[in-house]
Design a protein around this nucleic acid. Structure first.
Lengths: 216, 216
DNA sequence: GGGTGACACGTACGCTGTACGTGCGTCAAC
DNA sequence: GTTGACGCACGTACAGCGTACGTGTCACCC
């Protein structure tokens, strides 16, 4: 008797995904990992798809919010956005799984609540708050996708299209800006867009642009 | 003799994906679709992964740019963003494939060239232009992912978490804004974020905020 | 005519998800 | 104490997957 249960299975799946990538996930592999027969898993998980949904939910539920309602709303927005980026960094390969399955899970609802509360506090009406949240989620998801996309390949430095094989006649601007296109500090990039979005929201809020960056 | 070739295979794959979803794609299925043996495909395509890369490239290459360098840069940005959304609408289920494989393909280079040229024309320096482009891509990708995510399920109206099963005590704001969360006009939402981004870029450019929306 | 390549094809191997049946442990009812 | 029900780990089995490999049939060139 090995006391199988859903959370142990999900944990093994998360572990496996992080170690060997999402393609390596198979029911047999997970069972072996747990020292268990394949079909035993099905006593706790209805299907592989459901297992991956559970993985997504488990990862998403680990987003830590230390929301401080007394802080200025722009700082609260920044902190919430960074919370997502943090777990995406902690589970880079699972992030792909989370994003690719768009199940509206319960774990995703708390962040939504916090974000909407923040935006309401900032003075936005309901419709605007929802619209801004959707835009924010789109930006964060898109950023994390790019940042995490390098994971499956051998990380060191994929021979980018921009490195040398670009015809300057066809792509003059790309050629000129190649140095900038090759280097990419993901954190810096994320913060750049985040700041632009926050500023844009502040402008829309009608207030003055606030520079109270909350990072250490 | 049935005159197989790569583009016919890719076309069949695109067709199959749009009709039955990415999960339905298998080499055998595509071969059957083409009235051909399975292994014949491998005379024109090295592997399934390469085929999916080719699908992504084919879809991406259909993005139509009618870039008018004489137009004001904000309008050019809007048009380019909408061009992506348009093909995503035309190939909703392939969009997922395009996004999930982050191969830096040649087809993706022309849009980059156009976008960077536009941003340089707007007066941004090289570093800023690249940063803004990355932010823009993140937003567009994130938006399209949300918009396209509904495709695999039965489209009509998935019973959203927000509809009724939400405890107003735990999620007061979500409960209050449920009507806005349930409805989602994707085009309106996309334009909302797009406008906010363009405005933010205009502010950053130091110029005045320009409202020259170019849509008919 | 004989060699050479391109290409459609069949077979086969190891892998996948999972439906189904089986056996064993524990617990409730009689 | 016996019996039945039930939970759960497990083995077997099946259809389907990607693809390595060998084979046969052409068109073409020397």
């Amino acid at each position: 008797m090995i006391m199988l249960n859903q959370s142990r299975i999900v944990a093994a799946a998360v572990d496996l995904i992080e170690r060997e990538g999402a393609d390596a996930v198979s029911m047999r592999r997970i069972a072996t990992e747990l020292g268990v027969g394949v079909m035993s898993l099905y006593n706790h998980v209805p299907s592989k798809a459901a297992l991956l949904d559970a993985v997504a939910e488990a990862v998403l539920s680990q987003v830590e919010f230390t929301d401080d309602p007394s802080a200025y709303w722009t700082d609260r927005v920044r902190i919430q956005a960074r919370a997502f980026r943090q777990i995406a960094h902690h589970y880079p390969r699972c992030t792909m799984v989370v994003v690719s399955r768009q199940r509206t899970s319960a774990a995703g609802l708390l962040p939504v609540e916090r974000a909407l509360a923040t935006l309401r506090d900032a003075g936005f009406d309901g419709r605007e708050a929802v619209g801004l949240l959707r835009m924010f989620i789109a930006y964060v998801v898109g950023s994390l996708l790019r940042e995490v996309g390098v994971a499956p390949a051998i990380p060191p430095v994929p021979p980018d299209v921009t490195s040398a094989g670009v015809d300057p006649a066809l792509f003059p601007v790309v050629g000129e800006l190649a140095p900038y296109l090759e280097e990419c500090d993901h954190e810096e990039e994320f913060e750049f867009g985040l700041e632009l979005l926050v500023q844009a929201m502040a402008v829309r809020a009608g207030g003055t642009v606030v520079r109270g960056d909350a990072r250490g």
